[in-house]
């Protein structure tokens, strides 16, 4: 198990490295002179050529791209993500202050989505090909097809602007959390419902379920004890993949609701073309995503006795 985790960590490292190379190249393929753009962002439109050159020299933008990349990488390995090119704030510090907001949103949305998806998927499987099943599956399709940026706007319009029940944007109280969570949670649950259903259906067709029935156990015991535990295992992996959707959704939801999380930070830094901040956010999100998926796989292995006792 430990060997497996180490192997996966190595892979995480390789993959994250690849991600940073991609973003770094994208930055340098971007049209325009980065030095000039930074200078404009800092000092405004009226610039002399000297000012631009000064920025180029101080930010090391005159060196070849790979030297710049290696230099950046060297700092990263010392946990130094550099400073914002525009506000001079420490990038890592800036990211860390944004983490709690994203975490709160992510957790509440994940909980809401599971609260919808798991019961819906399980009931659909048990009542296969009934009205309930069809309703759940159609609901899931509607959920996947609903653009969450539109849903967010509709919710603001209805609950904040028309009814005045909830704040339309901001961060701090439970009330602020409700609309972003409702925007993100249900659309995520729409994705999980189908795998939950098919996993449950698959399990219900297994021989050991027939064995359980042949023992004379009742429906409830069979479902809760014999089927559910087996059916939830693949769903756990799926929830891991969901984290990507969660982070992606967070970018949009945080932008709509002015939620001070890491997604909004990323979008703002893209608007400002603050390369150091973009690179920092990308690196951070990649690492978080990879580690979260690793954690999910380890959890899976722990919960599945077939893997847990693999080597004995």
């Amino acid at each position: 198990m430990l060997k497996y985790i180490l192997k996966r960590l190595l892979l995480v490292f390789v993959v994250v490295l690849g991600v940073t190379v991609v973003t770094f190249s994208a930055m340098h393929l971007a049209p325009g002179d980065p030095a000039e753009m930074i200078a404009v962002a800092r000092y405004g439109e009226d610039l002399t050529q000297e000012e631009i050159e000064w920025v180029r020299a101080t930010e090391g933008l005159d060196a070849p791209v790979y030297i710049q990349y290696l230099g950046w990488l060297e700092h990263v390995l010392r946990l130094d993500l550099g400073k914002s090119l525009i506000t001079y704030e420490d990038v890592l510090g800036e990211i860390l202050t944004r983490i709690p907001a994203t975490l709160v949103l992510a957790i509440s949305s994940l909980i809401l989505s599971l609260l919808i998806a798991l019961p819906a998927g399980i009931i659909s499987a048990i009542r296969k090909n009934t009205i309930v099943d069809n309703a759940c599956m159609t609901g899931a399709l509607l959920g996947v097809s609903m653009p969450n940026f539109w849903l967010g706007l509709l919710l603001i319009w209805l609950f904040a602007l028309s009814l005045g029940l909830l704040p339309s944007f901001g961060y701090g109280s439970i009330k602020h959390l409700i609309l972003p969570t409702i925007t993100l949670g249900p659309s995520m649950s729409a994705i999980t419902t189908r795998p939950t259903r098919s996993s449950m259906l698959d399990v219900l067709n297994q021989d050991y379920i027939v064995t359980a029935k042949a023992k004379g156990l009742d429906e409830r015991t069979i479902l809760l004890k014999h089927a559910l535990k087996n059916a939830m295992l693949p769903v756990i992996t799926f929830v891991g993949l969901q984290l990507g959707f969660l982070l992606g959704g967070a970018v949009i939801v945080e932008t709509i609701f002015a939620w001070p999380g890491i997604g909004r930070l990323l979008v703002d830094s893209i608007y400002a073309r603050d390369f150091a901040l973009i690179q920092g956010c990308v690196l951070f999100i990649a690492v978080i995503f990879a580690l979260a998926n690793l954690a999910v796989d380890v959890l899976y292995a722990y919960l599945d006795p077939r893997i847990r006792y693999e080597k004995k």
Binding site: V16, T23, A26, G244, G248, I252, L266, A286, F289
Partner: peptide, 11 residues
């Protein structure tokens, strides 16, 4: 390794 929408966004 990267949530699709975020990578698309950055690019």
């Amino acid at each position: 390794a990267f949530p699709g929408i975020i990578l698309a966004l950055v690019i």
